[in-house]
Design a binder for these strands. Structure first.
Lengths: 352, 352
DNA sequence: CTGAAAGCGCTTACAG
DNA sequence: CTGAAAGCGCTTACAG
């Protein structure tokens, strides 16, 4: 369906006053204008001159061209953010937190949807590097990711968020994944559960790996068994995979009364698998998720989960990056945020 | 919680081979290199020379500096996308669709979270314009938006998506909001509902206005009454406001058996208001949403809604923008996508 | 405190 | 088909 209207829109030249023109107008040298307009250099020029320049700039509607400045200084005040899937609600608040902090410092954020394939990912990174981004935030890395290696080799400032690299080659901001899963299991334990299964995330991702570790630790703390059948690893973080993995888990570990899922999408998949077998949640099987992503309070039953504070993670990641882009040769830092439990209705005491 | 490691990361200079260096290496003039590397100009240079240049470029790892090119050509191959709230799941697929099409043509996308306040919005637009974006996609406009006026005055190419302007001053891609709401009401009518209320969106937005128009038309088609009490307008598209507005609607229009909501968030708010009054959905009151945003199939009851194809809207918006950025003085176009009904479990025949 | 000069890395009329 | 030149709009040593 298309309607048209024959109105053409001639594009007018944008406000064309540049630094030179402004200098001519005020009667000073361009370099003086440049100094007067740079807060860190304004003290180098006489107050009255600086004032005249500022006033004229406003009157003429002068707007500095960041492209030219970027070419000259080799800095772009542009930051790239790579997410694995922009459609995944978990990343929105992360992006939002990053843009908030960076924006306040004059940086613009380019968000790139990396997708899951390796080739396009690398191409995107190269594209961002070609654009001379001053830094990169990666929300995508696996535990041993060649992308990170690549960025480091290119000499770009990198900060990892949500998922971290195993070898501490870059600063990162993550939720305490081990602790988060321990809290989840502890919650189930307190409710009375003893036979608990784990819907693990991909072991190639720090979140999948560490949450599994947290699961094993918490179980061990209580002297509970973790037979191999108690853990099934999902190939990816999505609902369909969660459903399939849960089917396998129920099959292999029939006595279970609760499932600790490595993330919310997986937990939602578990809902489906449970329903398909006529099992009720939480009456027959309790389910706890991870991330507290938007809307999981509205599903049925409202999902008990672990809140990880993605917006704060984004903010901290931005601050870390700012630090590196501004200062010089800083140490690698890891920021680990403490998560908390959100107790809703998908968990309850086991029957009987 | 923070741990540190005392590893410093010296930033290496990135691959420093520029066009001049490459020219020297091959033994030709820089302008020849420039031509050989530009697909649209390659035919101007001898094949063997061009080949030597291409080979050398690859060997030396030459990567053209888009910042320099941008300064020279006054084009940035950068496009800005303004969304009202990046955290709103409806916008993710739109953004994703835009980036997909634009990325294939070598454009990078800057996503800006506009927020709801006027000042910051304008500042963001100015920021993007200062960065010399080649075009802007606005997913934020009200029916008569000064932001659009501003963009037009600045001479930037603009395309509207999801929400359109009343006066056709820019090309746009929207869902057929009138038709979508008619389909929703028709569905309720077929189910047997006769007393239907409308949870309207803000009348300052095209979606709010047109869906309301669609509601009124559909009711009139069937000779059904639409007393003033049958429509309540939400001040914004969010759950809490949906809950409040529904409370008012139930109060003012007690006989109703179904609610047609202007969007899914509002519908989800209606769920809460209904539950608060002990009314069951759909047994007591049917609810239909709009947008089919992620996860509404998982809420309880799974939401019957109108699918608007946001990813396609994004793609089309990108294509429209591409057209304008490339061609010259094109007519204003409106693309209107046909939505469809997704029948799930929040609607059913009225009782009795 | 201010100016003159050089240059960031490209592209594109203009010659030949 | 190729080269030489100019210039996009800034910033920053270098003088004075």
């Amino acid at each position: 369906m298309q309607r048209q209207r024959m109105t053409s829109s001639p594009i007018e030249p944008r406000s064309r006053v540049n630094l030179r023109r402004l200098a001519d107008e005020v009667g000073v040298h361009p370099s003086t204008v440049s100094r007067a307009l740079d807060p860190t250099k304004r003290h180098l020029v006489a107050d009255d001159v600086a004032d005249r320049i500022t006033t004229a700039a406003r009157q003429l509607g002068y707007r500095p061209n960041p492209v030219a400045a970027s070419l000259r200084t080799r800095r772009s005040t542009l930051v790239g953010v790579l997410v694995p899937d922009i459609t995944n609600p978990v990343f929105s608040p992360i992006i939002s937190g990053i843009a908030e902090i960076l924006g306040a410092e004059g940086y613009s954020t380019i968000v790139a949807d990396a997708g899951t394939e390796f080739g396009p990912r690398m191409a995107l990174i190269d594209e961002l590097i070609a654009r001379r981004v001053d830094g990169l935030v990666l929300a995508t890395v696996s535990r041993d990711d060649p992308m990170l290696e690549h960025c480091l080799a290119e000499g770009v400032h990198v900060v990892l968020v949500n998922r971290a690299d195993d070898s501490d080659r870059a600063s990162s901001v993550v939720s305490d994944d081990v602790a988060g899963m321990r809290v989840a299991v502890e919650h189930l334990y307190q409710l009375g559960h003893r036979v608990i299964g784990h819907l693990a995330g991909p072991s190639t991702l720090s979140t999948g790996h560490l949450r599994r570790v947290g699961f094993e630790q918490a179980m061990q703390d209580h002297g509970l068994a973790v037979p191999p059948a108690a853990i099934v690893e999902a190939a990816s973080y999505d609902r369909d995979e969660g459903e399939r993995a849960t089917a396998r888990l129920l099959q292999a570990y029939p006595g279970l009364t609760a499932i600790a899922a490595a993330n919310d999408l997986l937990a939602l998949g578990a809902y489906k698998a449970l329903a398909a077998r006529g099992l009720r949640c939480p009456a027959d099987v309790s389910v706890v998720g991870h991330n507290d992503m938007p809307l999981v309070d509205m599903v049925e039953p409202p999902l008990t989960t672990i809140r990880i504070g993605p917006r704060d993670m984004g903010r901290d990641a931005a601050r870390l990056l700012l630090e590196r882009m501004t200062g010089s040769a800083l140490p690698i830092r890891r920021i680990v945020l403490a998560p908390d439990l959100v107790f809703r209705a998908s968990t309850a005491a086991p029957r009987g």
